[in-house]
């Protein structure tokens, strides 16, 4: 049997992922995260009497803290596993990836462990986040004629 035939045999015996179900779960939980975020922004605007721009920074910090804290308590991984992209795409996913790596490598020391490995998963998010922000910023400036 050659590799192509074997791949066919493997495909025949491998069930498909439930993409529709996963997508619906992620859609609703992701949407719910959006509601929580907006709620926090409104709350901070009223409480501290600040602009929505400032309040959204507060909101992001809050969600990062909650994501990290729940990861440390040890059950956030089960939530993420259930909600999938509903919790991974929002900022909570970033916090979860950072914190789980930090926890994992804590025992290998502050510098060689946490320092060197904390960005193991989230590092790509930062790198490509910066690259795409730069690219789309340039497109906005040069092609769409946005102001600097």
């Amino acid at each position: 049997m050659d590799k192509k035939d074997y791949q066919k045999l493997v495909d025949k015996n491998t069930p498909k992922e439930k993409r529709l179900k996963n997508g619906i779960v992620a859609f609703f939980i992701g949407g719910f995260m959006g509601i929580i975020g907006q709620g926090l922004i409104d709350l901070y605007m009223n409480w501290f009497d600040i602009s929505s721009k400032q309040a959204s920074v507060f909101m992001i910090v809050t969600l990062i803290f909650v994501g990290c804290f729940l990861t440390c308590l040890g059950f956030f991984d089960k939530w993420v596993n259930f909600a999938r992209c509903g919790l991974i795409v929002p900022i909570t996913g970033f916090a979860h990836a950072m914190m789980s790596a930090a926890l994992e490598y804590k025992k290998e020391g502050m510098v060689t462990g946490i320092g060197a490995n904390m960005f193991k998963l989230a590092g790509s998010v930062i790198i490509f986040g910066v690259v795409s922000a730069y690219t789309f910023g340039l497109i906005r400036l040069l092609i769409l004629g946005g102001s600097v």
């Binding site: 992922e17 979860h96 789980s100 926890l103 994992e104 998963l121």
Partner: peptide, 17 residues
């Protein structure tokens, strides 16, 4: 998990296989 996949506390979903 630590060596071959993701940190233990990371909950990114895995395929059913």
């Amino acid at each position: 998990e630590k060596q071959f996949r993701y940190p233990v506390e990371y909950g990114g979903p895995k395929p059913i296989t």
